[in-house]
Amino acid sequence: MGVPLIESPRSGRMSPGYTRSSTSKGNFELYAWLFMRFSGVVLVVLIFVHLWANLIAGDGISGIDFGFVAGKWASPLWQIWDLTMLWLAMLHGTNGVRTIINDYAERNTTRMGLKGVLYTSAVVIIVLGTLVIFTFDPCPVIDGVATVADYCPAS
């Protein structure tokens, strides 16, 4: 009766079914754990303000269009805000999904394959989002046609 004995993960006395091929050295898991808590606190502030500015203030979601984005990114504060949010949220989310894959995908090949897809997607999204923030043009000329908006210089 009572709680079954569960050996510590580092005791070396785990059931063979739970052991895995490569065990990484170093304190990576400790820093990943710490990062989740640090980034989590920062993300609560970043995302709550983001939701307030986009969904509650002004006209809420009905006010969001290209001009709304252009208005926000005209300010370096919002550029840095969104850039920080992008990087922290993507790293936080990628590490969270990495943990879930490690927990549930028991076959080595399945686990490595899923994590390969995860890391590839994360790099693509982080690079894309960063480029979009830094190369954004509020008055793009597309196929020779200039964008006409009240904040664009008359040409």
Partner: peptide, 12 residues
């Protein structure tokens, strides 16, 4: 959400 926001680089 990052993908839909990225459309600001395609066209308004």
């Amino acid at each position: 959400h990052v993908l839909d926001t990225s459309l600001v680089r395609v066209s308004p």
